[in-house]
Simulated assay, not measured.
Amino acid sequence: MGFGVGLVGVSLAEILLRMSGRIPTGIPFWASVTTSAPFALYLMIGGYWLKRSDVPEVRYPRVLAITMTGMMFLGGFFTIIGVTFRQVGIVQTLSPIRWGLSVGGGSGLLLAFLNAQRIEKELASERELIRSAELEERRELLNYLNALLRHEVLNTANVIEGYATGLMESLDGDEKDNAATIRRQARELTVIIDDVRFLLRAAGENPSMEPTNLSRMLRDELTSLQDRHPEVDIDRDIPDEVYVAADLMLKRLLSNLLENAVEHNPDERPWVSAEVSVTDDTAAVRIEDNGPGVPETVQSDLFKPAQKWDDRHGLGLLIVKRLANRYDGRIELTETGPDGSVFTVELPLATT
């Protein structure tokens, strides 16, 4: 940048001297000025422009080296010409040197910039190839884990449940209770495995969104919830025909959200309210319960895989969070306390 300012200043000073009449001028001089001025201006603004380009700072020394090489090559060449064919007066002698420095430096900076951009594009292509390979390895690992859970762990849990059921029929007292505990835990393990497999599946595929009837799907899930938990009182406020941009996995989001509201509710009369409200571009699903609330110690990490709240409870909310992200939506704990909690999921409306 400093070289460019200096060369522009020299050109202006030379023009003023020649325009004053003290030094003769002519077509060669004006040709020299007009052809070198763009290069000098480029040198002057090049540093400012380079900092705002996509060229990283690690490339700056190389850009400077190429620029200086260009200046020294053409500048040195025309210095030899200026000295060898010395004209009358120092200004006439410096004109070719000024031209060589301007054109050499400007050309060098341009070539350096283009070279740096080419290198960055090549590196970006290499990073993309590496990323694609890593994604493919990750997809293969997810498929392997999914198959392992389905064929090995899930089968083992089913075997344990079957043997526990058989023991319950032949035992009495505490031993029967122990067998019942084994069966209950095996069933719980089956549910958890199913949730983990679902998360692996959701992470390993590309979603294909289409208009999905949120109203109908939520009503169906409330009916299923009532069938599974007939003791639960359910209130609903669901407008007709609300469509969101989603896929069939939306059913899993809603079922986990509703199950989360009743599964660990110790109230004698569990209660759930489902409400849908619509704005210009989103639909908000508000699920309220009368449970004991979410412990304050886990609220900040409620939707993170590492949170330590009840495992089954946490997996359900993790699924809801992942699916909300899948649909470019969001979920939040709107309210919580000893009288219950409110979870709200916002989803983008379908465009057609």
Score class of each variant (00 low, 15 high):
230 P>F: 13
266 P>S: 04
251 K>D: 12
231 E>R: 10
214 L>N: 06
254 L>K: 07
247 D>F: 10
269 R>C: 00
282 T>N: 12
270 P>Y: 12
289 D>R: 02
218 L>W: 11
215 S>N: 03
286 R>G: 07
269 R>V: 07
261 A>E: 04
228 R>E: 06
276 V>F: 13
248 L>P: 00
244 V>T: 03
275 E>S: 11
279 T>C: 10
231 E>Y: 01
289 D>A: 12
255 S>E: 03
224 S>D: 14
262 V>T: 05
217 M>A: 11
236 R>A: 14
260 N>Y: 04
224 S>I: 03
228 R>Q: 13
268 E>Q: 13
267 D>V: 06
246 A>T: 04
235 D>Q: 10
237 D>K: 07
271 W>T: 12
222 L>N: 13
269 R>P: 01
213 N>I: 00
275 E>V: 07
257 L>A: 10
219 R>Q: 12
285 V>S: 05
285 V>H: 08
213 N>C: 05
281 D>I: 12
265 N>H: 14
258 L>V: 02
288 E>A: 12
258 L>M: 05
276 V>M: 05
246 A>F: 08
283 A>C: 08
255 S>N: 02
247 D>N: 09
220 D>A: 14
215 S>E: 05
264 H>V: 00
231 E>F: 04
265 N>T: 04
266 P>K: 07
221 E>L: 02
280 D>C: 02
223 T>E: 15
